[in-house]
Design a protein around this nucleic acid. Structure first.
Lengths: 149, 149
DNA sequence: GCAACCTTCATGATATATCATACATTCATC
DNA sequence: GATGAATGTATGATATATCATGAAGGTTGC
């Protein structure tokens, strides 16, 4: 049975969390997706990142980040100013409305996390985090120490 | 930092596992996605499921399952026979080639899981599974016992 | 100052996720 | 057996994921 396979539980848990989190944002009448919110948040913290940098932080590839940025810009949550010293890039700035949206979403996200983690102790959470990171490392391409010679 | 948020670790771990697993299937020269493989496998086990049934088992919605089935059929891994007693449905049958593909993928999937779980004890895995299931439950719509009155 | 290379970003193609809806069929009820 | 509800499937619209590639700008080395 699939339910006994760990990766199925993993997939199931994260999918359900995302549905739950998105539903709560929708219910609050805020028009933004979880992924857009995440990217917007990263840009607010540091506005001189390339799309690849942002992708590394939110664990998305550059193409996905480019499309999310385009949507955020179209919706007026993000503005792009050209950078004089590098014609390829633009400086991304979270607009007023973007900031209002981030502020509106913030308590919902905190509440989502808290609700989703009910019944898990601090120790549970620490262990869970540690095990997940181990899986991540196990699935990552061999680092330099590993594939030389 | 995002790295301290559990759901970020969760997202990161499952995404990396999926990339890793898909890369290993690709490297073996087998033309199938993880999701297609999963659906095909479920159909092999039980061939009289509706798309909604399949979706429940693999944690996808009916629309996604419909599209995956269409691709599997187009690629000759799945065949549909009409059912006399219900004009809406068809009986899905995994073709010879579908079975060969499933057999070819099986050892890769087992190896993927084993590699991804290196360093996790049985107890770790059991606990992880339990914690993930708890998150799933926490994020699931209130059950009947919960939202009455 | 040019050639080769690298970086940044955009986009096409394909696959999946989600919501909504349309359509046909079946079932339940009368 | 006609009708309304429920079921099964397909598909449109939009968002994200992934891979590949193209185009433009920047850097390095000569």
């Amino acid at each position: 049975m699939l339910s006994h396979i760990l990766f199925y539980s993993l997939d199931k848990a994260i999918k359900q969390y995302r549905r739950f989190a998105q539903a709560n944002i929708d219910r609050a009448g805020i028009a933004i997706t979880i992924d857009q919110w995440l990217v917007l948040r990263v840009i607010l913290e540091k506005d001189d990142l390339t799309q690849t940098d942002i992708g590394e932080r939110v664990f998305k590839d550059q193409a996905s980040v480019a499309r999310i940025i385009r949507l955020l810009t179209q919706r007026g949550l993000l503005a792009a100013e050209s950078l004089p010293h590098d014609g390829r890039r633009t400086r991304l700035r979270v607009t007023e409305e973007g900031q209002r949206t981030l502020e509106a979403v913030q308590p919902i996200v905190l509440s989502n996390r808290q609700l989703a983690l009910q019944g898990l102790t601090e120790a549970d959470q620490a262990l869970l985090s540690q095990l997940l990171d181990r899986i991540y490392v196990n699935c990552s391409p061999a680092s330099d120490s590993d594939n030389q010679a």
